[in-house]
Simulated scan of single mutants.
Amino acid sequence: MYKGGGDLQHYQVDSVKRNTLAQQVMEQIISLLMSGQLMPGDRLPPEMELMEQLDVSRPVVREALSSLETLEVISRRPRGGTFVSEKVGSSPFRAMLAIFINNLPAVIEARMTLELGLVTIAAEKITDEELSQLKETIENIRLHRDDYGAYDKQFHRVIAYSAKNPIVEGMIESLLIAHDKTDSLITFREPELTIQYHEAILEALKKHDPAEAFQKMYDHLKYVRDKILDGQS
């Protein structure tokens, strides 16, 4: 744990030399987490020490820390320093997501893998109250066609948590971070199509049909994947 006033020599960190500097800084910090040299709750060294040890500029360090904070791998306390989030201990998937957050095909496939598994279990377990919540999110998308991202995300959150699996619950918030990443890359919105996909998923869940729920979710996520990757090409 960083105690303050020392240097980073006891951390096995390589200097950063490649082009995507902020990404490389993120990977170095994550590697310390994965190796156990940094633990949830530990304080990170000050920016100046990170700059010197990694041989990068302050803007690069700040960009990397900002990205890690967005991913909830670290948290910054006013006048208190930067700390590894306690959430990382319960959700190591956050660390993996941080490393590959700019690998869009990998992020999208990870999202698809998790959501397709969750929706099949949700089809067996979802309650009438949760079905009503899904219907409400669809109505909100219909009412807020120009800015419905939060309601889209809530639709997927309700399904994920309705699976009621404590082992994967630590992965769900990371899944939603992946949702935010993919959502931010959509250049044009098609609310009617989103509503159609969501309604098809809802109908399958109402029937408690795992196979149909899987297929309808796959149709939706494949559409999202193709839309994003086509836009990046």
Rank of each mutant, 00 (worst) to 15 (best):
K3L: 15
G6C: 15
D7A: 08
Q9D: 15
Q9H: 13
Q9C: 12
D14Y: 09
D14L: 10
S15W: 11
S15M: 14
R18D: 13
T20V: 12
Q24M: 14
Q24K: 10
L33Q: 00
S35V: 02
G36M: 00
G36S: 01
L38S: 02
M39T: 15
P40K: 13
G41D: 08
L44P: 13
P45R: 04
L54R: 01
D55E: 11
D55Q: 08
V56Q: 00
V56I: 03
V60C: 04
S66G: 14
S67C: 08
S67D: 07
V73C: 08
R76D: 06
T82E: 01
F83E: 00
E86L: 12
K87W: 03
V88R: 01
V88H: 02
F93S: 13
R94P: 05
R94A: 04
A95V: 09
V107K: 05
R111K: 12
R111G: 09
M112K: 11
L116P: 01
L116E: 09
I121N: 07
E124I: 06
I126E: 02
L131W: 03
K135H: 13
E136S: 14
T137W: 00
E139P: 11
I141V: 15
L143K: 15
H144M: 09
R145G: 15
Y148D: 06
A150G: 04
F155W: 08
V158Q: 08
V158W: 01
Y161G: 06
Y161A: 03
K164E: 09
I167L: 14
E169Y: 10
E169C: 06
I172G: 01
E173L: 10
L175T: 00
L176V: 06
A178K: 01
D180P: 12
D183H: 13
S184T: 10
L185N: 05
L193M: 14
L193W: 12
T194N: 09
T194Y: 07
Y197G: 08
H198L: 05
L205V: 02
L205I: 04
D209G: 04
E212K: 10
K216R: 14
H220V: 00
Y223M: 08
Y223N: 13
V224R: 03
R225G: 01
D226W: 07
D226H: 10
K227L: 13
D230F: 04
G231F: 05
Q232P: 05
Q232E: 11
